[in-house]
């Protein structure tokens, strides 16, 4: 461990990508062989879901690599694009009316860029309150000026939810990148890496364990596989992976495990909430193109991160009393 910590940041990054892409290739190879060998019907559904998750992990890893290569401004821009695409998908599935046009314009063309500029310029105090305080008021005001009282609360709640999840939540990922710790520099990218790995691990473990453990689901109408035991095990797994990665973070081993637990728990619960949301919107799976306009599947992929990133960011910032 002391050897790992003695490496320079660049060397550590190199090592990380080696581990990450190596591991992914290994898992993909195993998945390909399993798919060739095992043709039985009952495993089919679990395997396709696993394959989809694996593909998403590949994409996530590549995106992270791109973010690393392009540096802080590039990463901020990259996440802003993801925010835009996710919000576009979210708004499509939620019924809005004509009177909401102005509030939607505000959300897409003002709130989104401003939030990412705030993240990029490290104005974290304003960054934290901009959407929950100022935008919270601005959106219903514009909506009310639209002059349509029908389902007013519902429509505004939908837009505000979309902004909170897709813009506020996701913008915490590049903010992590820019968070400055005393005594250690350039640790931001490692934190994002830590967060992504931990949430993805928790999500995949949750899928995997719940397909093995045939338990009674806690909320059958929302998710037929989500069980408390699988969830708890997935969170523990996330804590374990977080502990394994402690050497790249500014944390000590126990801190890293707790942070892993927090991020993993927030991510999996976030995904659960998102499932409830899409049931409400009449979608069984975000990716069922052709059935419902707008279900492209990106939202499915970023949802855990959207919920985990702010929780993780504020836990770190509060615990370490960071001002920057």
């Amino acid at each position: 461990m002391t050897y790992l910590q003695s490496l320079t940041a660049t060397q550590q990054v190199g090592l990380l990508f080696l581990i990450l892409f190596g591991g992914l290739m290994l898992v993909s190879a195993v998945a390909v062989f399993t798919a060739m060998r095992d043709k039985s019907e009952q495993n089919d559904h679990g395997l396709t879901k696993f394959a989809a998750d694996l593909r998403a992990t590949w994409v996530g890893a590549l995106v992270f690599w791109l973010a690393w290569v392009s540096g802080a401004p590039g990463a901020t821009f990259l996440f802003a694009v993801f925010s835009f695409l996710a919000l576009r998908e979210f708004v499509t599935l939620m019924q809005t009316r004509r009177a909401d046009h102005r509030s939607l314009m505000l959300a897409f063309f003002v709130v989104l860029p401003v939030q990412y500029i705030l993240a990029g310029s490290r104005s974290f105090d304003l960054f934290t309150v901009f959407i929950p305080v100022y935008v919270f008021l601005a959106i219903p005001v514009l909506s009310a000026l639209g002059g349509d009282p029908l389902r007013f609360l519902e429509r505004n709640a939908k837009i505000q939810w979309g902004v909170m999840v897709c813009v506020f939540g996701l913008s915490h990922a590049p903010a992590l990148l820019l968070l400055d710790f005393p005594h250690v520099h350039d640790r931001g990218p490692f934190l994002v890496f830590f967060l992504v790995i931990v949430t993805v691990t928790a999500q995949m473990l949750e899928t995997f364990i719940s397909s093995r453990l045939r338990r009674r689901p806690v909320a059958r109408m929302i998710d037929r596989t989500f069980g408390l035991r699988a969830w708890a095990l997935a969170c523990l797994g996330a804590a374990f992976v977080g502990g394994l990665l402690f050497w790249i973070t500014p944390f000590k081993l126990p801190q890293a495990m707790v942070m892993g637990l927090i991020a993993g728990a927030a991510g999996t619960l976030g995904e659960f909430v998102m499932t409830a949301l899409k049931r409400d919107a009449g979608v069984n799976y975000w990716g069922n193109t052709g059935q419902v306009t707008g279900a492209v599947g990106l939202l499915d992929r970023v949802a855990p991160l959207c919920f985990a990133a702010p929780v993780f960011f504020h836990s770190v910032r509060w615990y370490f009393q960071l001002r920057g």
């Binding site: 576009r88 998908e89 708004v91 499509t92 063309f109 306009t293």
Partner: peptide
């Protein structure tokens, strides 16, 4: 053509990003 009326309702000039098929 689905959803396009939500992108730019009558009387508006700026389109809002909403997926269409």
């Amino acid at each position: 053509i689905d959803n396009v009326q939500r992108v730019m309702p009558k009387g508006e000039v700026v389109p809002v990003p909403i997926l269409c098929t």
